[in-house]
């Protein structure tokens, strides 16, 4: 893969991880975690693990986001930190 695109993907990964950790609104954290997961899937695919990237894209970016949103719906949306 072209290393410039991979560098941009790594930067995107780190930024989304920091935003997901530091966000006060937990819905923002869930959405950013989904972005993190999809970037991770793209990086897995770039490194040759197509099967792992596929699983990460389906589970991390699809089902886990919905389950987190439902968990927020049952609890509070503001963090207590």
């Amino acid at each position: 893969m072209i290393w410039e695109i991979e560098l941009v993907l790594f930067l995107f990964l780190i930024i989304s991880a920091i935003v997901a950790l530091e966000a006060k609104d937990l819905l923002i954290a869930v959405v950013t975690l989904t972005i993190f997961s999809f970037t991770m899937a793209l990086l897995f695919t770039a490194m040759g693990g197509i099967d792992v990237g596929f699983t990460e894209a389906v589970i991390g970016a699809g089902v886990t986001g919905i389950l987190f949103v439902i968990a927020l719906f049952r609890t509070t949306i503001k963090t207590n930190d």
Binding site: I50, D51, T55, V58, V63
Partner: peptide, 14 residues
């Protein structure tokens, strides 16, 4: 090919 029962089942579930 890449994929399998778990990934396909997760796609159906989603």
């Amino acid at each position: 090919s890449p994929g399998g029962g778990f990934q396909g089942g997760a796609l159906l579930a989603s």
